[in-house]
Design a binder for these strands. Structure first.
Lengths: 239, 239
DNA sequence: CGCCCAATTGACTTAAATCAACAACGGTGG
DNA sequence: CCACCGTTGTTGATTTAAGTCAATTGGGCG
């Protein structure tokens, strides 16, 4: 159930058998969530965190005028709101972009990990810091990249992140979200996203169609996006 | 030396005498840094974190064309790169915006805290998650707020954050940064920032001049910005 | 005193938003 | 089975918020 989470954590850190066992013991209830359902609202008092087993979820905030900004997209294996363990109340909503399967992890069990497994605690702490690094890259995209580079960067990021959990097939991967969702990730209108996707296609860089992304020219896409995966902390560290 | 950090942490959490002592034992070398000096570069392998004692610092990234995006502004009492403890290498640079005094905290001492003080570990983990919450609010600003609302929101945030460490005097506070710095926080040009500051002045909402911010109409500014301090997790939590 | 950088303002350009149609598609119910 | 409907995707015409270019002011300081 938590295999994809383990895949990611073990890429960077060496986990002992005890630590893996502790992680395996985390999930409580497993729930299926339909697409478009908001499962957590900003401000709710929480006592469990959400582990995404399958599907795509996102964190988002709305403004009064109805405009929405997605602050992170989550893929299978992501601990979607591990940060609620320390925050208690989230500053954002969480919803399913596709039908999802999630596992709920009681905060009490996470607390026990911080009491008994200092190294594992650091590993989990790391994973929330990685989310923050992704936020910072998005801040850079939203603040300084053009619309085209922003989309290119987004596709590069998802290509790497999905690849880490075995969900990218070479240069193509399933990303069953609408152009509207994409626009809400990128701080654009869906109309402009549509035009920029067309350009990426015409420039033979990448194709996003029917929820399937196919990268035609990875180097070119990365150059356009100024993408480097460094911010994803893929380097293995010694225990 | 770490009084301002303690002020913030103790607002939210109850710290035992032992925990406070452990925090007080964190700082190693104390260093004075001149304005505009970049003290940490993305990708450097780090073995200590930086506690800001006095001054203003920021985290930033550059693009090839020379444009820069600041992803967070730090004030006295902030643990500027506590996240380098788990990340080992940062995805961004850190520089002083004003002359600063910093204390360097060896990662080894932080590691010892994770071994000996589970509750304190959770408090420190929380503080990196708070940074991430600030990032998310900036993502919302950059993605969806107008230039004017973005500036207004920025001023509201700094007003609260500086107030927490005793650096706001009612409705005014010192913020000795240039309009260029401000533009790099907000994903705008300094020229546009200048025009929007003028508007804030003309609308009798706030005045930013000579490094001093004076809020004329806090409610109005908050309304324009759609500012709510909830994302700063100011609520006290039971131990 | 003169230099440099920040701040300010005006004129003009541009990237992206908005407005408006329409096509494509999938589901649903008659 | 297919007509209908709502959502998503696509494209063109137009507007607009913010950027760019350019010139001027002004303060701090060596």
């Amino acid at each position: 159930m938590i295999e994809k989470l383990l895949m990611k954590l073990c890429l960077r850190d060496e986990l002992s058998a005890d630590e893996v066992a502790a992680l395996r013991a985390l999930p409580g209830r497993v729930i299926d969530v339909p697409a478009d359902k908001t499962i957590i609202r900003a401000g709710d008092l929480l006592n469990e965190s959400t582990l995404l087993i399958d599907g795509l979820m996102c964190r988002y905030k709305d403004l009064r005028d109805g405009s929405r900004q997605i602050s992170e997209l989550h893929v299978a294996g992501d601990f979607v709101d591990l940060h609620s363990f320390t925050l208690k109340r989230l500053d954002h909503n969480i919803m399913a972009l596709t039908p999802c399967r999630i596992a709920q992890v009681p905060h009490e069990r996470l607390k026990q990990i911080t009491e008994d497994f200092p190294h594992l605690t650091r590993v989990l702490w790391f994973s929330t810091n990685l989310d923050a690094a992704i936020h910072r890259e998005w801040v850079l995209s939203l603040g300084r990249r053009t619309a085209l580079a922003r989309i290119a960067h987004f596709l590069c990021e998802l290509h790497v992140r999905l690849g880490l959990v075995g969900l990218a097939d070479g240069l193509s991967f399933r990303l069953p979200i609408t152009q509207i969702d994409l626009a809400e990730c990128l701080g654009l209108t869906s109309i402009h996203v549509n035009r920029m996707l067309k350009q990426l296609r015409e420039r033979k860089l990448a194709d996003f169609r029917n929820g399937l992304v196919t990268i035609a020219d990875l180097k070119g896409l990365e150059r356009l996006a100024e993408f480097s995966p460094d911010y994803l902390s893929l380097e293995r560290i010694p225990r």
